[in-house]
């Protein structure tokens, strides 16, 4: 299946990515190739298969529950210090449009 320009644009938009022209054509090709290869999955049926997480077959854990006891929070400064824009109390972004 050839991945169309519109599809690549749509996906880039969903993923909040902007591609240069060169990146765009390479992406188109790469996606077409790998999706083409993935067509091999078509011979499988997912009908009636339960919706499980990807590692549910290999990870036998269940009911891992943490006690509701408060633990130490990270000091505010440590959380903020890697941020590009903050005012020592809040993270700052340009005003969102609601």
């Amino acid at each position: 299946m050839q991945i169309s320009k519109e599809t690549v644009e749509h996906i880039a938009h969903l993923a909040k990515l902007e591609l240069s022209q060169e990146e765009f054509s390479r992406a188109e090709q790469a996606l077409t190739d790998i999706i083409g290869h993935a067509e091999i999955l078509n011979s499988l049926s997912s009908k009636g298969s339960p919706t499980v997480s990807a590692n549910e077959f290999i990870c036998s854990r269940q009911n891992l529950l943490r006690l509701d006891t408060p633990g130490a929070s990270t000091p505010k400064e440590h959380l903020l210090e890697n941020a590009a824009s903050h005012d020592n109390d809040y993270f700052i972004v340009p005003k969102t449009v609601d």
Partner: peptide, 18 residues
């Protein structure tokens, strides 16, 4: 999903973790 406190009305970003 973490042990940070849920109490209401505290100073911003003081009840957070990674």
């Amino acid at each position: 999903f973490c042990s940070c406190s849920t109490s209401f009305g505290n100073a911003p970003n003081t009840q957070c973790c990674p």
